[in-house]
């Protein structure tokens, strides 16, 4: 596993990918930090929360080539014909991508130090957002791995990953949209009274929102820690890594 991990992590810096991802992250987080600084309201967790909305750009950049490039280059054969397992391959690549996120995140740590130096505070909730950031990153990187294993084109895998993340980001919007829709429908046709209609609507929206990793982990920024949201993220990450593993294994049976 370490062999794959090392190669993949270094390969981010053999071509522009790693630099682009890090530059992008540094730039955007820097802009937020300066913005907060000029307003005199430094709030690390708000910066990190804002950065999460850029997963949609950064994750596809980081993960798009992980598996698709191997297929295009024909280096995939190395994974099957050497004394390593496909589990090693998937985990090595996943951890390499996660490490790149960690490297990017050093920026935020620097911002934390600057906050301290400038007399600001870093509270428990901020560390909560840091934890959530990495668990969410794990979830999305696993998704990206899956998207990358589906095809031999980086572009297609990036688009698939982008759409996946977009859908997840829109879950809460979709939930409230559906809630309004259902309530309006039920009230217009007088099927149930408005109290019941509202109850039904909110149940539906709650059910859909249950799937939203962002709302699930929201309380961390207020210093309220809970294992369930983290477990939720890890389960989904494991699920997609398992699918990735199965796709690689399947190729052995159905090539050409």
């Amino acid at each position: 596993m370490f062999a794959i991990f090392k190669r993949e992590l270094l390969s981010y810096f053999r071509n522009p990918t790693g630099y682009i991802a890090i530059a992008l992250f540094s730039f955007i987080s820097g802009v937020y930090f300066i913005n907060l600084l000029t307003r005199g309201a430094i709030n690390i967790s708000s910066e990190i929360t804002q950065m999460r909305s850029f997963f949609i750009i950064i994750v596809p950049i980081v993960t798009m080539g992980l598996f698709s490039e191997d297929r295009r280059r024909g280096t995939e054969v190395l994974y099957y014909t050497n004394p390593i397992t496909l589990f090693d391959v998937v985990m090595g690549k996943f951890l390499a991508a996660m490490s790149l996120f960690f490297i990017m995140f050093i920026n935020v740590f620097i911002h934390m130090i600057m906050t301290k130096i400038l007399g600001g505070v870093v509270v428990t909730g901020d560390w909560g957002t840091v934890i959530v950031f990495f668990f969410l990153a794990a979830l999305f990187v696993a998704l990206g791995c899956f998207a990358s294993a589906l095809t031999d084109s980086q572009l297609i895998s990036a688009i698939v990953c982008f759409v996946f993340i977009l859908v997840i980001q829109l879950v809460s919007t979709f939930a409230s949209f559906l809630e309004t829709g259902v309530v309006t429908l039920l009230e217009t046709f007088n099927i149930v009274n408005s109290e019941t209609a509202n109850a039904i609507g909110s149940t539906i929206s709650d059910a859909i929102n249950w799937l939203d990793p962002f709302t699930k982990t929201n309380n961390f920024r207020y210093g309220v820690f809970s294992v369930i949201p983290l477990f939720f993220c890890i389960s989904i990450a494991v699920f997609f890594l398992y699918l990735t593993f199965r796709i690689l294994e399947k190729k052995r049976w159905s090539q050409k």
Partner: peptide, 26 residues
């Protein structure tokens, strides 16, 4: 195994690549 299309990483130097192969082959 040398497949028809050699499994090479264009972004690595020859020695880096062979070291990587040493890692893979333990």
């Amino acid at each position: 195994y040398l497949p028809e299309q050699p499994p090479l990483y264009n972004d690595m130097t020859v020695i880096e690549y062979l070291n990587f192969m040493c890692d893979l082959k333990k």
